[in-house]
Amino acid sequence: MCQHSVTILIFFIVVFAFYQESPLFMSTLVRKAFGSGRWFSGDGKALTKEVLGYIESASIPAISGRIVASIAPHAGFRYSGPIAGHTFRAIRDMPKENQPELLIIIGFSHSERISGAALMDGTAITTPCGTSQLDVESGQFLCQQSSEIRFDGRYHNGEHSAENEIPFAQVALPTVPLVVALIGDSGVQPLSKALVELNKRKRLTVVCSTDMLHDENYDKVLATDEKTLKDTENMDIDALQKAWSYQHQIYCGFKPVMCGLYFAKALGCQKAQILKHSCSGDGKPASQRDYNVGYGSAVMTIP
């Protein structure tokens, strides 16, 4: 092979490698939800009916202003679905002028340590409820704001924290595109600041995916969650940070919640509104409350 041909071959290898790692290349991917048939039903009609039922059954108090951030749980739908339904009904039922142009779903990894924020790659994601567009342009804008933010679909493969919110988004807001992120240790501040900048271009609503305390003691879960929700209502980040530890996870999705609180505060929100709380041990005899998980719904608004 002549030197000229070798040079051309190397050039094309380099170009291919570049585009393979770039969002433009990755954006050709239509992702399929990993949780289909695992965390939620794989039957489209059944899942849509189930999710719609949770949303329609939610009783929402009067909400003033535009919801800029929110909290929704992500456990198996039969446990967390009724609470998540409150969050998505509140967002769905906002006046037209306050409806989001883009929904940001923020989760975390249950199994891997993430540095910064990893955005879901691809142009769309499909669940049994339908297909949602992934806003690649907005994702690229976020990446431009900080080196801590990048497209990295590897962390999303098999992780349910953010993905479990997508069927609710598809039923409540079927035409609204998504940006789906998983954040880790160094991702909270960079992503919250980047979202503030993105909100200047598009009307955002952020969904922070988290369950609450997990513990064998039912009464402890109720008492802890009550205090956590009160601190969340007051947007008392210092109190929440002092209460949280790896041994006492008041929010398993603590970093998504912190990101949402910082974002909402930066936009002028001063108080969150708690919509609903439940525990997996509710309604069970004490003998069956061997392990309990709390679930909460909340929204943060601006005028």
Rank of each mutant, 00 (worst) to 15 (best):
E216D: 03
W39L: 11
H74E: 09
E21W: 04
D219E: 13
P256F: 06
L240Y: 02
L24R: 07
H110C: 13
K271P: 15
V14M: 01
A84E: 09
E165M: 12
A298E: 04
S36K: 12
L103M: 15
H86L: 09
R78W: 13
V180Q: 06
G187P: 03
R289N: 01
V180S: 04
K32R: 11
L47M: 08
L275T: 01
Q273D: 10
G296C: 11
A72F: 12
C129Q: 07
S115A: 07
S64N: 14
A124W: 01
Y218H: 12
S64L: 00
H160E: 05
L9A: 14
V221Y: 09
T7Q: 14
V51Q: 09
A118S: 15
E112W: 04
H248E: 08
I10S: 08
I83H: 08
D135T: 05
S5V: 07
S297N: 05
G184W: 01
C129Y: 05
C129I: 08
D121G: 13
S36D: 10
C279S: 14
L240R: 03
Q3G: 08
Y79D: 10
P82I: 07
L134V: 11
I60T: 08
K276Q: 15
L102I: 12
K32M: 00
S115L: 03
C208T: 00
E112N: 15
I71R: 06
Q3D: 14
E101S: 08
L9T: 15
S80C: 12
N157Q: 10
D152T: 01
I8P: 03
M1Q: 04
R66F: 12
L178K: 07
L267P: 08
V188S: 00
P61Q: 01
P285S: 06
R38D: 09
F18K: 00
S278F: 02
R66Y: 12
Q270M: 09
I166G: 03
N292Q: 07
L173V: 01
E101T: 02
I67R: 11
C269L: 06
T301N: 00
Q3V: 15
D282N: 13
L204V: 00
S209A: 14
K193Q: 13
Q241R: 14
E226S: 13
D43N: 13
A264H: 00
A90T: 07
